[in-house]
């Protein structure tokens, strides 16, 4: 016990006084930086997870898409989903011509589209 106390005392003596005076001086600057980044990334991950599992419920896979202006090119919208339709539906018009469409895997969700 005595030896331990002496060792601790020696250690304290050996340390430079500045080490004890400066509150922030005990970390290397790059370490501070890494800690800041790590904390930030953890926060982002938490935010992402919260967003994914709690807030995404009502939106499901859909992207809210608004087209203002070009009314004539409005895509087919199933009933009850005004203003929120699968982004893939907006994209399956072929790039070559306005009247051609590409076969793209249909969005599979709870929305039932009845062909008219």
């Amino acid at each position: 016990m005595q030896a331990l106390q002496v060792a601790a005392l020696c250690l304290l003596m050996a340390l430079e006084p500045v080490n004890c005076q400066q509150a922030r001086g005990n970390l290397q600057p790059w370490m501070q930086g890494l800690i800041a980044v790590a904390v930030f990334l953890v926060l982002v991950a938490i935010a992402f997870a919260v967003n994914k599992y709690w807030c995404q419920e009502k939106e499901e896979n859909m992207e809210s898409v608004v087209t203002i202006g070009d009314k004539k090119e409005e895509a087919v919208v199933s009933n009850g989903t005004e203003g929120r339709y699968s982004i893939t539906a907006a994209d399956f018009r072929s790039k070559e011509t306005q009247h051609a469409y590409e076969n793209i895997v249909e969005y599979e969700g709870k929305v039932i589209t009845t062909p008219m």
Binding site: R24, P29, W30, Q32, G33, A36, V37, F40, L41
Partner: peptide, 13 residues
């Protein structure tokens, strides 16, 4: 970008 900026903030904190 924010991560890089925060690293620098931490580095010069």
């Amino acid at each position: 970008m924010m991560a890089l900026a925060l690293f620098l903030w931490g580095y010069y904190a």
